[in-house]
Amino acid sequence: RVIAMPSVRKYAREKGVDIRLVQGTGKNGRVLKEDIDAWLA
């Protein structure tokens, strides 16, 4: 299970990103909004 705040999950869904593919850089591997942006870049 991916650790991410609900707002980040929603952001990823809106961008069409599968959050399971994104490498989290936050505490304990948490996926941050910046990680979604970096994955899209």
Results as ranks from 00 to 15, higher is better:
R1K: 15
R1F: 05
R1A: 12
R1L: 10
R1M: 13
R1S: 08
R1P: 15
R1Q: 13
R1G: 11
R1Y: 05
V2Q: 07
V2F: 05
V2Y: 03
V2D: 10
V2A: 05
V2R: 04
V2W: 03
V2T: 07
V2M: 03
I3V: 14
I3L: 08
I3S: 10
I3D: 13
I3E: 08
I3N: 13
I3G: 14
I3W: 04
I3Y: 04
I3A: 05
A4I: 08
A4G: 04
A4D: 03
A4F: 03
A4L: 05
A4M: 05
A4P: 04
A4T: 05
M5D: 09
M5E: 12
M5I: 11
M5S: 04
M5R: 12
M5K: 14
M5N: 13
P6T: 09
P6W: 11
P6F: 05
P6D: 06
P6I: 05
P6M: 12
P6L: 11
P6K: 12
P6G: 10
S7D: 11
S7E: 14
S7Y: 12
S7L: 11
S7P: 07
S7H: 13
S7Q: 10
V8E: 14
V8A: 04
R9W: 09
R9H: 07
R9L: 05
R9N: 05
R9M: 04
R9I: 08
R9F: 08
R9Q: 04
R9G: 02
K10H: 07
K10G: 04
K10D: 04
K10Y: 07
K10F: 11
K10R: 12
K10I: 10
K10N: 12
Y11A: 02
Y11G: 01
Y11C: 03
Y11S: 02
Y11E: 02
A12Y: 01
A12S: 08
A12I: 01
A12F: 01
A12N: 00
A12W: 02
A12V: 01
A12R: 01
A12D: 00
A12M: 01
R13Y: 13
R13V: 08
R13G: 06
R13T: 10
R13A: 12
R13S: 07
R13H: 12
R13P: 00
R13K: 15
E14S: 08
E14L: 14
E14H: 08
E14W: 14
E14R: 10
E14T: 09
E14Y: 07
E14F: 11
K15H: 12
K15M: 09
K15N: 07
K15T: 15
K15G: 04
K15Y: 12
K15W: 09
K15S: 09
K15A: 07
G16M: 14
G16S: 08
G16N: 14
G16H: 09
G16T: 05
G16L: 08
G16Q: 05
G16I: 04
V17H: 00
V17F: 03
V17L: 07
V17R: 00
V17N: 00
V17I: 08
V17M: 04
V17T: 02
V17W: 00
D18G: 03
D18N: 13
D18F: 06
D18T: 06
D18K: 07
D18A: 06
D18R: 04
D18H: 05
D18S: 07
D18Q: 11
I19W: 08
I19F: 06
I19N: 01
I19M: 06
I19Y: 04
I19L: 12
I19Q: 01
I19E: 03
I19T: 04
I19V: 09
I19K: 00
R20Y: 09
R20H: 14
R20P: 03
R20F: 14
R20V: 07
R20Q: 12
R20D: 13
R20E: 11
R20N: 07
L21Y: 12
L21S: 14
L21F: 14
L21P: 02
L21Q: 09
L21K: 09
V22M: 08
V22H: 01
V22S: 01
V22G: 02
V22T: 05
V22E: 00
V22R: 01
Q23K: 14
Q23E: 11
Q23D: 09
Q23A: 10
G24K: 04
G24S: 10
G24E: 02
G24V: 03
G24M: 03
G24W: 02
G24R: 03
G24N: 04
G24Q: 03
T25E: 04
T25G: 05
T25R: 09
T25H: 11
T25I: 03
T25F: 04
T25W: 04
T25M: 06
G26Y: 02
G26I: 03
G26Q: 03
G26M: 02
G26E: 04
G26F: 03
K27D: 13
K27T: 11
K27Q: 14
K27P: 11
K27N: 12
K27V: 07
K27C: 09
N28P: 01
N28F: 12
N28L: 13
N28K: 14
N28Q: 15
N28H: 09
N28Y: 10
N28M: 12
N28E: 15
G29V: 02
G29A: 06
G29L: 09
G29H: 11
G29K: 10
G29N: 11
G29T: 03
G29R: 06
G29F: 09
G29E: 07
G29Q: 08
G29M: 10
R30G: 14
R30Q: 07
R30V: 05
R30Y: 11
R30T: 10
R30S: 11
R30N: 12
R30D: 07
V31R: 03
V31N: 01
V31F: 02
V31A: 03
V31M: 03
V31L: 06
V31E: 00
V31W: 01
V31D: 00
L32T: 07
L32Y: 12
L32A: 06
L32W: 05
L32R: 14
L32D: 05
L32E: 08
L32P: 00
L32G: 12
K33P: 05
K33S: 10
K33H: 07
K33A: 14
K33M: 10
K33N: 06
K33Y: 06
K33F: 15
K33Q: 07
K33R: 15
E34S: 10
E34D: 15
E34F: 14
E34M: 15
E34P: 12
E34V: 13
E34R: 13
E34L: 10
E34K: 15
E34A: 13
D35A: 01
D35V: 01
D35I: 00
D35M: 01
D35S: 02
D35H: 02
D35Y: 00
D35K: 00
D35Q: 01
D35L: 01
D35P: 00
D35R: 00
I36S: 00
I36A: 00
I36W: 00
I36H: 00
I36V: 10
I36D: 00
I36K: 00
I36M: 01
I36F: 00
D37Q: 11
D37N: 13
D37A: 04
D37F: 04
D37K: 06
D37H: 06
D37E: 09
D37G: 03
D37S: 06
D37P: 01
D37I: 08
D37V: 08
A38K: 11
A38Q: 12
A38N: 14
A38P: 01
A38G: 07
A38T: 15
A38I: 15
W39Y: 14
W39G: 03
W39V: 12
W39H: 09
W39Q: 10
W39K: 08
W39I: 08
W39R: 15
W39M: 11
W39A: 04
L40E: 07
L40S: 06
L40T: 11
L40H: 09
L40M: 11
L40V: 11
L40D: 05
L40W: 08
A41K: 12
A41N: 13
A41C: 10
A41T: 15
A41E: 13
A41I: 13
A41P: 05
A41Y: 13
A41L: 08
